[in-house]
């Protein structure tokens, strides 16, 4: 998983975080971040399944304009916590309304089913749009973008440090895990397993703190004064403005249509 933040993807700002061949990747990251946020807020407000489906179609269309791996992206979109799935399955049985069919002595209502479907579509539309617009960015570009969008500098710096060390610490975790494996450790449902994982994580924490000390000293040696120069080449061009405007019109139209529909019927 952490390969996303890993060595195979250069954490440099040189390539500006996008592959020039992809259409979505050619736009200013700032427009993409704002668009993804706007899309999420608006889609969550949609009340009608038909319009939620249109939003999902827009997200799907956006995905085809990226060069993200198709199967992986769809898999990531569909992955939800187990409890959300349970909740969605339970909704028809817990919402009062017109009974549709009954199962195990409980009536499933039409309203509940529609509500569950609506939640499912909205959730997937937002996640798909977010993955399409943003997951092509490198974490560093994302940090710069958030900084340019006036996020607190401390938060952005914290994020950049986190991103930098996730792959390092994940490797460290694998080293420790390998050492356990070599000594015949197998994860089971035993106290021994939980204790071993606790020691593993405790060791990870101790080592990472020692690493943090070294990092801070090394940075001070190189004259770290508490500020990072943010060197990037974000340019806002006419096509970015056009994309932003088009996107806003599309989304507002969708929400307006949704509202009109709700009021009329």
């Amino acid at each position: 998983m952490s390969h996303l933040f890993g060595h195979d993807q250069p954490l440099s700002v040189k390539d500006n975080g996008f592959n020039p061949r992809s259409f979505v990747g050619s736009f200013d990251p700032r427009v993409r971040v704002v668009a993804a946020g706007l899309f999420a807020v608006m889609v969550v407000a949609l009340q009608q399944i038909e319009f939620a489906l249109i939003a999902f179609a827009i997200a799907l269309g956006t995905m085809f304009l990226t060069d993200l791996p198709l199967r992986l992206t769809l898999k990531r979109m569909a992955a939800m916590d187990g409890f959300i799935i349970v909740m969605l399955v339970m909704l028809p049985f817990t919402t009062p309304g017109t009974p549709m069919f009954s199962m195990f002595g409980a009536d499933a209502s039409k309203e509940g089913l529609l509500h569950a479907v609506l939640i499912g579509i909205r959730a997937n539309a937002v996640v798909l749009m977010m993955l399409s617009l943003l997951s092509g960015l490198t974490p560093v570009t994302l940090g710069h973008t958030l900084y340019r969008l006036r996020c607190p500098a401390a938060l952005v710096h914290l994020m950049m440090f986190t991103v930098r060390y996730i792959s390092v610490l994940h490797d460290e975790y694998h080293r420790l895990r390998m050492a356990m494996k070599l000594r015949g450790f197998k994860a089971r449902n035993t106290i021994h397993t939980y204790r071993s994982f606790g020691y593993l994580f405790g060791m990870l924490l101790v080592r990472s703190l020692e690493r943090a000390e070294r990092v801070l000293e090394a940075m001070k040696l190189r004259g770290f004064s508490g500020h990072f120069p943010m060197i990037d080449h974000l340019v806002f061009r006419r096509r970015d403005a056009a994309l932003g405007a088009g996107f806003v019109v599309l989304i507002v139209l969708l929400v307006l249509m949704d509202r009109v529909y709700v009021f009329t019927y």
Binding site: M1, S2, A154, H157, L158, M159, M160, F161, T162, V163, R164, Y165, I166, V168, L169, H170, Y173, A187, R188, N189, T193, Y194, F197, L200, F201, L204, L205, S208, L209, R211, A212, E213, V215, L216, M219, F224, G226, H227
Partner: peptide
């Protein structure tokens, strides 16, 4: 979070991110 604590906090934040990648058997 003063600025010279950010490196340490970032490393710890990364550690807790890695925790969410560690799977432990339950049943």
């Amino acid at each position: 979070l003063p600025i010279d604590k950010i490196p340490a906090t970032g490393v710890l934040s990364a550690t807790f991110f890695v925790a969410s990648l560690i799977h432990v058997p339950v049943g």
